[in-house]
Design a protein around this nucleic acid. Structure first.
Lengths: 345, 345
DNA sequence: CTGAAAGCGCTTACAG
DNA sequence: CTGAAAGCGCTTACAG
């Protein structure tokens, strides 16, 4: 059986209370007995039992991380490991552990969240995504449980601490960049009604277009599913059924990479025939040919700050909700042509 | 404060013991009182406290996952999310939670492992990697703590349950495939002395070459670092300082993708001038141009089986160590030329 | 400076 | 079929 505080007490010839106090390095214990107790601990190979400690101090020193549902392939995206790396850094520095959700559907995940908070498995939660329709945030808010979200909450944002890029602004800038080069036939690929960040990015695209006085063609705003789920043939048909855009803003590098491969098959040249800018700046962007221009959203930083905010909330429950904005920066590579001049039809 | 078993007992007019028994669905409790207790639980919104339960039953219902150290960029690799998806599936089915390591260095990770097992934070551990030099496995073995590894343990393999591909065999097949096409100047990129799987893959390469009677040129066996860490210029120099291989086996898709981009810059054509096969078959392979031939190692399955084995070990501590081999299968795409005939120099 | 006692929220023999 | 009691391994007032 594992060695407990009692065993140590016996060997060190003190009471269990005293052993507990030297673990906490209580200043009221004499150096002499601290030494003796520590010796005993080493001798026996004592390690405190976490469960027991948690039970009495009512803190688990672990943070729960809710991933997007693993049934989809969102996880193929390097976003996830990178954000985890940021969170890990802070967790480790503060000696917190990480407890991960495993649910495959929204419903399962919701159940897990309830388990985590009611079962006192974690001290706080980081939501790795923000959906337009999600019971979790509301639940957490109602329970007044510490949490933080990566992305902009669709509801109750003013009551929630979250960290996000300014997606509207960033996409506006990117679109402007294209407009300034002279493009007018600019499409936007990758909205979906569930993910708030895609909605924000679309909004930024629209604002830039409007400010430039370029009318937005409805079939230039394209749902993420269209590129993700369609067979190559369907996409090709689409491309040839209407006037091709000359530049495209995409919400995700993966979409851009898929599109580039299709373009190549169709002998549509990037950037000569069509310019591309996407988001996330995954490592692979630089290895594409041509190398892909992409907005670096600082995923690591997103995770790091989310963890920081959460710990802050856990340690100071009264801190007010706040928003942290992580800068995003376009990395120019070779998928956008130089200045061109385009007629508006 | 959270509602406890006592609160439920009071409302349902039974003893706490009885409430505990209806939670466990003990058959000795009458349906009538079960109903009453459950009503009380619903009414109060009762959820069992996990810490307390763990403490007495001495089981945490959570498995620890040890990731490779997050200081490096290994995590950029989609291997990780995918293996996690497999583990999650099994964990969830068995109502186990997942506790994740956060360490950035080998030493930190080792400390964490000790915490996990001594602090009774987890019931068992899955090691996501196998290194040639690693104290963790030895420690776990000495402690007789349930664990499972993904990859082949370099030491004590006969005493450890692990799941792996047959990397030697798989690489041998791939190399043979190239040899059968008529290649002789075949290089191997991506060994490193730390990761057992790269050593196994190199071994397979060597065996195939030897069996075909093709002498192995030393500078055709190339360390992973060479491609990962060098600047483009250094790599270019290297390529032109010696006779170019006509085919290359790479241990990882990322290496292949990087190499393809460099080749394109040098106007070395794939597959006309140089054929390529790599490992992992990440989603992006199909979007490369030309689409990259790669060995599908079934990452999801690797995770799933590792979790299965671990649960088996947790539930039946006496089960003997075993090895599970997950099949690997080369997905032929367009990076290997058709039959050619090559002179051996 | 240190110890005895109570308690965190559960489970599980033991008894009836 | 159900309850009282002891205990899991800790921490922390309270007392001295």
């Amino acid at each position: 059986m594992a060695v407990t505080i009692k065993d140590v007490a016996r060997v060190a010839q003190v009471s269990p209370s005293t052993v507990s106090r030297v673990i906490a390095d209580n200043p009221r214990i004499s150096e002499e007995t601290k030494r003796r107790v520590r010796e005993a601990m080493d001798e026996l190979g004592y390690h405190p039992n976490f469960q027991a400690r948690s039970l009495v101090v009512k803190s688990t020193k672990t943070i729960g991380i809710i991933m997007p549902n693993s049934a989809t392939q969102v996880l193929e995206n390097p976003f996830f490991p990178e954000v985890l790396r940021g969170i890990s850094l802070i967790a480790r520095e503060n000696r917190f552990g990480i407890y991960l959700s495993t649910g495959a559907t929204q419903e399962e995940i919701f159940e897990e969240v309830i388990q985590m908070v009611q079962g006192r498995r974690v001290d706080g939660i980081i939501l790795l995504y923000s959906k337009t329709d999600d019971k979790i945030m509301k639940y957490l808010l109602d329970e007044d449980f510490p949490f933080t979200v990566i992305g902009r909450p669709f509801h109750n944002a003013e009551r929630i601490t979250y960290v996000d890029n300014d997606n509207i602004y960033a996409t506006k800038q990117v679109t402007k960049y294209l407009i300034d080069k002279g493009y007018k036939k600019i499409a936007f690929i990758g909205v979906n009604t569930e993910d708030v960040f895609t909605i924000d990015r679309m909004e930024g695209y629209k604002q830039a277009m409007e400010e430039a006085g370029i009318p937005i063609k409805e079939d230039y705003v394209i749902h993420e599913k269209w590129l993700k789920e369609n067979e190559k043939e369907a996409i090709i048909d689409y491309f040839f059924s209407k006037e091709l855009p000359t530049a495209i803003v995409l919400t995700d590098d993966f979409l851009a990479i898929k599109l580039m491969s299709i373009a190549e098959d169709l002998s549509i040249r990037v950037p000569e025939d069509i310019s591309l800018v996407s988001f996330n700046n995954i490592m692979l962007c630089q290895y594409m040919r041509p190398p892909l221009s992409s907005v670096d959203i600082n995923i690591f930083q997103l995770g790091l700050e989310a963890a920081n905010c959460l710990l802050d909330k856990i340690n100071h429950p009264e801190t007010l909700p706040k928003r942290i904005t992580i800068p995003a920066k376009m990395i120019e590579r070779k998928t956008c042509a130089k200045i061109i001049k385009e007629q508006n039809e």
